[in-house]
Nucleic acid binder design. Structure first.
Lengths: 188, 188
DNA sequence: ACCTGAACACCGTTCAAGT
DNA sequence: ACCTGAACACCGTTCAAGT
C-alpha cells in the first residue's frame, strides 16, 4: 500500500508523542514508516509544512463555544478549549507556538474569538487586539506548563524560571479572569 | 590573546544580529572567532547555556521601574522595558522565549513585577499568577511582532496568522491595559 | 589552562534514476 | 505517480592530544 499524506501525518503525531518535539525529525519519521527520508517530500514540501499540518489537526479539534452562553462564558470556553487542544499531544503547545511564529498561512486560531468579542461589543481593531492578548496568554501558559511537566519527568525539578509554581489550573483561571475583567471594563 | 567567556558571548550576539536565531550555530560562531568549534566548550558547557547567557544579558538591561510611580505606572513601565529589551537584538524575543521554555535556572524576568504587584495589594499567589499573565502577554506579543518583521523583510508579506495586523504599538498598549484593568479590579 | 584535530551521531533537502 | 539511493551542506558534542 502506498504512503498517503494522512498516514505520514498520523505517524508524525505518534512520533511526536513518543519522542517529543525536539526529536521529531524527518529521518526518524521516515524510519518509523519504513521508507527513505526523501519519500516524505513527495507528500509534504518540507518539514515546516508537516508541522503546520500537525498544528492544524490539533487546533481543528477545538469546538466553537456554545453561542447561547454570554460573551464571557464563550471567552472562557474558547480559552479552555484551546488549552485542552494544546495539551492533547506531547509538546503540543511548543509545536503550535513554533508554527504560529513562522506564520504558516491558514493557521489562525484567533478567528472564532475575534467574532465573539466583536459580537460582545468591541469594535474590530479592539477585538483583534484583545483576542491576540488572550491567545498569547493561553499559549504562554500552555508552553510553560508543558515545559514544566517535561522537566519534572526528567527529574530536573528546577525552581521554575519565567513563572512560579502554584497550581496550573488556578494560575490559568486567574490570568484568564484578569483578561475577561479587562475586556468587560471596555464594553460600556 | 586567549578567548574569554565574554568575548564568546559578545561575538554570539553579533552573530545573532547578523544571521538570526535559526542560523546561530556553534560552528558558525567558532568560525567568526577563528577557532575550532570544540574550543567554545571550554567556555560554555553547551549551546543551551550560551543561549541562556545571551538571554540574561538582554534581560539584565531592563531597569527597575521608578518606585515613585503608582503601581499601574510601574507595571506599564516594566512591560515596556521588557518589550524594548526583547527588541534590542534580532529574534531576541524568540531566543528569550526558548530559554525560558527550557527553564534555565536563574533566568526569571518576573521577579521585579511580582514585587510590584505584591506591594500593590495582591497576595503572593495572585501576584505570581498576574505577573505570569503579563509576562506571557509581552513575550507573545514580541515574538509575534519580530516574526512579522522577519516575514516582511523576506517579502513573504502574509495575511498574518495567530494575530492580526494593525499598529503593533497600539495592540501592545491595548492588551496591556486589559491586564492592568483586570488587576485593578482585584485590588479592592 | 586553553585549544586543535578528528571523530561520532546526527540533521533537512535535492535530484537523478528506477518502477 | 510515487519511491529509492546517493549525495550535499550542514548540525552539537566529545575527547585524546598538543602547547
Amino acid at each position: 500500500m502506498a504512503l498517503t499524506r494522512q498516514a505520514v501525518l498520523d505517524e508524525a503525531i505518534r512520533t511526536l508523542d513518543a519522542y517529543g518535539f525536539a526529536d521529531l525529525s524527518m529521518r526518524k519519521l521516515a524510519g518509523a514508516l519504513e521508507v527513505q527520508p526523501s519519500a516524505l517530500y513527495w507528500h509534504f514540501a518540507n518539514k515546516q509544512s508537516l508541522l503546520a499540518a500537525i498544528a492544524e489537526s490539533m487546533l481543528g479539534q477545538v469546538a466553537a463555544p456554545d453561542p447561547r452562553l454570554d460573551w464571557d462564558g464563550q471567552v472562557r470556553s474558547w480559552a479552555h478549549g484551546l488549552r485542552a487542544a494544546l495539551s492533547s499531544h506531547r509538546d503540543g503547545a511548543e509545536l503550535v507556538a513554533s508554527v504560529l511564529s513562522m506564520r504558516a498561512e491558514g493557521v489562525d486560531p484567533t478567528r472564532g474569538l475575534v467574532a465573539i468579542l466583536h459580537r460582545a461589543g468591541l469594535r474590530a481593531p479592539d477585538a483583534r487586539a484583545a483576542a491576540a492578548g488572550v491567545l498569547h496568554f493561553v499559549m504562554g501558559h500552555a508552553v510553560d506548563e508543558q515545559g514544566h511537566a517535561q522537566m519534572q519527568a526528567f527529574g530536573v525539578a528546577s525552581a521554575g524560571p519565567g513563572v512560579a509554581p502554584d497550581d496550573p489550573d488556578q494560575r490559568f483561571a486567574y490570568g484568564l479572569e484578569l483578561l475577561v475583567d479587562g475586556i468587560r471594563s471596555r464594553l460600556t
